[in-house]
Amino acid sequence: MLLTLLAATGLGLLRIRNLFAVVMLAGVYSLLSAGLFTVMDAVDVAFTEAAVGAGISTVLFLGAMALCGHHESRPGHTPLLPLFVVCLTGIALVYGTMDMPPFGGADNPVHHHVADHYIEESYHEIGIPNVVTSVLASYRGYDTMGETTVVFAAAVGVMILLIGARTRRERPGGEGGDG
């Protein structure tokens, strides 16, 4: 049911050329995926998807839309070559899944490497009921620190791009031209 709604929203996203409706549909898409994650018991992921996908990124898209107008122009080329490439990639991906263990199988390697230890021992070792939090912040603390640094670095990149563009426009022909 949710997957059908997701597919319908995705098709709608492709067909509509009014960018305001596209932004709203993208928010709907995120909310539906969050529902799907909840159904699959991945509540933490669903939470993040709802907050980031349906919340902040909708606002940022609206902000970007205020800069570039409400209508998407028609592409100047035929969609046949991209369609061919996408089909080829899809076939390659499906071929790749042939070797994978059956979906949801209890004996799959992913469930038996370190997951058993986390689920059985994390309450005694960390003392926290939410296994996701103890894996994220304690067992995998270095990874999360790297993630935080990546988020920070991405923001610095955006700042350099946007603030740099602004100062260049305010000083046309200034010495900071190509910086």
């Binding site: 902040i56 606002v59 940022l60 902000g63 970007a64 800069l67 960390i126 926290i128 939090t133 103890s134 912040a137 304690s138 603390g141 999360t144 620190m145 993630e147 935080t148 988020v151 920070f152 991405a154 923001a155 955006v158 700042m159 946007l162 603030i163």
Partner: peptide, 23 residues
Amino acid sequence: ILLVELGVLVTVFGVMVSVFYLF
């Protein structure tokens, strides 16, 4: 865990609001 998550909170909050300000 609370302290490092506080670090994550402060960074993510700062990044989100800065990017929003810029846009």
